[in-house]
Amino acid sequence: MAQKKAGEVEAFLSRPDFSFPVILLYGPDPGLVAERSAKIAEMSGVDRDDPFAAVTLAADELEKDIGRLYDEARTVSMFGGHRLIRVRGAGAGKALAEAVGDLAASRLEGALVVVEAGDLKKSAALRNNVERGRFAMALPCYQDEGRAIDRMIDEELGQSGLSIDREARDELRARLGANRLASRGEVRKLCLYALGAPSVTEADVRAIVGDVSADTLDETIDAAASGEVKRLPHLIDRLVSAGTATFQLHQNLLRYFQQLQTMREMVERGGEAIGRVVERRRPHFRRKAALEAALAAWPLEEITAILQRIERDILMSRKEGGLALTITQKTLLDIAVEAARLRARGGRA
């Protein structure tokens, strides 16, 4: 079986073995998967700016036309040399899993296929087909933790000729998100800010590295529940960049509407004023107005329907891992549109 353990992947990436022309990278951190895929692409020697030598394909599009992957993988380069085919957003697609299995069974001549996937279970067809393939390699990519975070910090600081004391390092690690690319970007920004100084201080970290994920998560849910449709795309993009997992968004959204349901019962069945119910919850002052707007807009029957919708979408996103982000985005936007409609109608205070 051609696969590496998580701790062996960095060693493989330092000297990739291209006798395995089909390489699968998978894991819960899309930034880490993308970064490692880019490294393999760079070390392949293929000119990634040459459209005749390098091509990037979307997994969901290949599910509709899987013949495209076979064509690209078996096409001889017009000007000689190797070709690079990168497939992004792979998940539970059956057509792609079968095609990758076929390509992995025999040696590809002059082509390298690199597949980027989400977090695949051991039973996932794509992962199984690669692991069993004679000419394929599976590389698990897990989130930055412990030594991996410190190694990345040291790499970036070393390139800038900077050092960092223990307190500043602890503060920096606490502020980095789960997405490898986003985390590296934050550290590079910090290095640029501290350039010329002998070392990075805790004050530098607090001044330049923002812990956006938690605050943005609350903002996103508040915007959806209160009907701020125009703000949502930007907020979702910020969460994705920070590496926030889709299941975290869905779970927090579910919890929010469960609490909203309890509060609305106090209004409709207990006859309490909206302001008093909200005050009893003691929300952060920045969230108070949005919570009041949501509580005023959503009647109990609509909240019940939304809770059922969220639960269905959570189940669907787990079954279709490659579409999890799309499903979550649609959930949030649909809720925001409905909230805006209810507010325009005047709600039922």
Rank of each mutant, 00 (worst) to 15 (best):
254 L>R: 11
26 Y>I: 02
274 I>T: 15
301 E>P: 05
315 L>Y: 10
91 G>H: 04
52 F>T: 07
322 G>T: 02
349 A>R: 15
349 A>M: 09
294 A>P: 00
333 L>V: 13
38 A>Q: 14
32 L>C: 08
170 D>L: 10
25 L>D: 04
120 L>C: 08
77 S>C: 04
135 F>N: 15
284 H>S: 09
51 P>H: 10
336 A>I: 00
189 K>E: 03
311 E>F: 11
56 T>H: 05
236 I>S: 02
239 L>N: 08
57 L>Y: 00
61 E>P: 00
249 L>V: 14
45 G>S: 09
148 A>Y: 09
69 L>P: 00
115 V>K: 04
272 E>K: 15
74 R>F: 01
54 A>Y: 04
161 G>T: 02
90 A>I: 01
266 M>H: 11
122 K>E: 10
288 K>H: 08
54 A>G: 04
78 M>D: 05
321 G>I: 05
298 W>L: 01
333 L>C: 05
345 R>D: 06
112 L>Y: 12
84 L>R: 04
176 L>P: 11
310 I>G: 02
335 I>S: 05
49 D>G: 11
138 A>F: 03
117 A>I: 00
271 G>I: 03
339 A>S: 12
28 P>A: 13
63 E>K: 00
245 A>E: 15
297 A>Y: 03
289 A>H: 10
60 D>S: 11
98 E>R: 07
124 A>I: 00
135 F>P: 11
